[in-house]
């Protein structure tokens, strides 16, 4: 499959997300836990590889926006991928768990998204390629009201866009 075709599918999915509020990118495997690169049979230049093999999201502690070493490792992988796939731009979505007011969580999500953005910039990604948006507590990935779910909801997700020339 050519890069063009995959990119087209990706853009179509983004368009759908904009219309329906479905956070399609959250439905994926989203490898936040480990690198998972070894053994992957995905095309290393594909968005799917970015999401699943590198990991498209980093997680945060309660009320925190600082990156732990694991998160930094994922973002380093994202930066390397973006360096070799330079036609992509990204939007980093910052999210919070449901413990907190709507307004505070919007601000907290902005902090988290920016934290990931700053790290990508420190790893050589041009700031002009990275937009941030906060969803606060509006788009939970996991829906239980327990720390096991909250831990996965406190996240910054790097969503790819563009790539039409790839």
């Amino acid at each position: 499959m050519s890069g063009f075709k995959k990119a087209f599918v990706l853009v179509a999915a983004l368009g759908l997300a904009a219309c329906s509020n479905t956070s399609w990118n959250d439905a994926g495997a989203g490898n936040a836990g480990g690198s998972g690169i070894a053994g992957s049979n995905l095309d290393p230049a594909s968005p799917a590889y970015f999401q699943e093999a590198i990991g498209d999201r980093v997680l945060f502690l309660i009320d925190q926006s600082t990156l732990n070493p694991e998160a930094e490792a994922i973002l380093q992988g994202q930066a390397r991928w973006l360096a070799s796939n330079s036609d992509y731009v990204v939007t980093i979505q910052g999210h919070a768990d449901e413990q907190g007011t709507r307004e505070y969580n919007l601000a907290l999500g902005a902090r988290r998204a920016n934290s990931a953005r700053e790290y990508l910039i420190s790893q050589g990604v041009a700031g002009s390629r990275i937009q941030v948006v906060s969803y606060g507590k509006e788009r939970p990935l996991e829906i239980c009201s327990a720390e096991s779910c909250y831990a996965k909801n406190r996240r910054a997700v790097t969503v790819l866009a563009g790539g039409l020339t790839g």
Binding site: S65, E103, L106, A107, A110, R111, R112, A113, N114, S115, R117, E118, Q131, V132, V133, S134
Partner: peptide, 26 residues
């Protein structure tokens, strides 16, 4: 690309106070 939220009218109905997040800071 600039996020703004939490708006409220002033009592005169002409001004709005709100939050704006830039560079992660609100």
């Amino acid at each position: 690309g600039i996020m703004s939220f939490a708006p409220r009218f002033a009592p005169d109905g002409k001004m709005v106070v709100y939050s704006q997040a830039e560079g992660g800071n609100t």
